[in-house]
Computed example of a mutant assay.
Amino acid sequence: MPQPLKFNKKFNELNEEEKKLLEINKKSIADFVEQSSSISDVNYATRNAHAKTYAVADGMFIIDQNIPEELLPFFDSEKFNLTIRLSNVNLKINTTEKDIPAYGFAVKIKDENGGLIANFPLINFPLFPTNSVSLFLRLFTAINRFYIKKWSNVFSLAVQTIKMVPSFFTLSFIRNIFKLLGKKNDFILSFDYHSVGAYRLGEHMIKIKLVPKSVNKKFGRKLKMKDALKSYFQDHNYSADVFIQFCYDLKDQPINRLNVEWKNSPFIKIGEVTISKGALLDPRDCNTELLSFNPFESKIFFQPVGKIQKLRDEAYKVSVQTRRKINKLLHKHQ
């Protein structure tokens, strides 16, 4: 078996234009979060993405007994405690329309003392719509400003969206879009979940995939998603296999081309994520809404890799700091 490539910080480096655009984007994120309670018509500040929480639960990560020996140093216990947040990708919380089937499965891995080991925000779509940092930052800024200023920013949003369109035309992206459309009414727990970008595993780089076991995709179709999850965990346990792929060759497993899938890298099973029935936490608890799943808060050898991932570091920090500041003030006055 070939040796996996080693992590190099050059994978994360932004150029000067990208750094400038990131500063503009950070300002738009802070503005969005400050006005998010009125944008979503709720009584607290929301996240700047994945604003709607469907459920938060305690879970367990059980390490596979047949895990390759060279991976054992990273998993020095048979099992780890998890906090899991199920969400929708939308920036705005809508209560009337049906949600688009773009879901998040964020995982916080903790040691036996409750100390953080790693955060992995996974989603049910394996690809990212563009490899261009500049294009993405301009579009994300335009979206934030559209939500704040509405129609006065619609032209800018339209222009940035049109510029993004060519990125969608990879075989991988089109195939996965059709796959998602075919599953648009399926139950949230029946989807596979993906890391999209790469993460460090020590000196090497990996992608993560979570594959559920025996979940009825038609469960709770007549219920709102929050109610469907509540109903599911009254009677069912959830379990999913966790796989990783290593980066061996940048041609087949590119770090900074996120709109194509990795190939010629086998999936290696490393364990299983479980959520027991009755494990849902109170969604109304203020501490639940204050939770952060920033993958850059992970231990250094589990952190994200790549330029788009690096943007998330800055975006998470601004979003979390603004949100916590507002929500703690609101909590004090309740």
Rank of each mutant, 00 (worst) to 15 (best):
F178L: 12
L180Y: 00
G182A: 13
A240D: 07
V242D: 01
H194W: 11
A198N: 03
F191K: 09
T170A: 05
R257H: 10
V242Q: 05
S214I: 02
L229M: 13
I177Y: 09
P266N: 05
N259E: 03
D192V: 01
Y248S: 08
E261K: 04
N264K: 14
N216A: 11
F173C: 06
K218L: 10
K209W: 00
S265K: 10
N256L: 08
S239E: 13
K184N: 10
F233S: 03
K207M: 09
Y238G: 04
T170Y: 05
R221H: 10
K251G: 00
L189E: 06
M205N: 07
F178T: 04
P212A: 06
S190F: 06
A198V: 03
K224T: 02
T170H: 02
L180C: 13
L258S: 06
G220I: 06
K269W: 05
F246D: 11
M205C: 13
G182F: 02
L210I: 14
F243M: 02
S239N: 14
I208Q: 12
N264V: 08
T170N: 00
H194D: 15
F219K: 10
A198W: 07
K184W: 03
D227Q: 13
K226M: 08
Q245P: 05
G202T: 12
Q253T: 06
L258M: 11
L210M: 15
N216K: 15
W262G: 06
K218A: 02
I188N: 14
I206E: 04
L189K: 15
N237Y: 01
Q234C: 12
K230M: 07
R257S: 07
S231G: 01
I255D: 02
S172K: 00
I177M: 15
M225P: 11
Y199Q: 10
V260L: 08
Y232W: 11
P254S: 14
L189F: 05
F246K: 03
V260I: 14
S231E: 15
N216S: 11
Y199T: 05
K263G: 09
K209L: 01
L171C: 00
F173T: 05
S172W: 04
P266K: 05
I177C: 14
K269Y: 04
Y199W: 03
F267N: 13
R221Y: 05
F169W: 01
Y248F: 15
I188L: 14
Y232G: 10
L181T: 14
F243S: 03
K184I: 14
N176T: 00
V211H: 04
I177E: 07
K217Q: 08
M225R: 12
I174L: 11
N185F: 04
K230P: 08
Y238N: 03
H236I: 07
A240G: 08
P254W: 02
F219C: 03
C247I: 00
H204E: 07
D241I: 01
Y232M: 12
K213Q: 06
E203V: 05
L223H: 07
G220Q: 11
K222L: 00
N216R: 07
D252W: 11
K209M: 08
S195F: 15
K230V: 09
L171V: 12
G202V: 15
F187H: 09
G197W: 11
H194Y: 13
L171R: 02
K269S: 11
M225Y: 06
Y248I: 05
P254A: 12
C247H: 01
N216H: 14
F191N: 14
I208F: 07
Y248K: 02
F173L: 10
F233N: 05
S172P: 01
L180N: 02
F191T: 12
N237S: 04
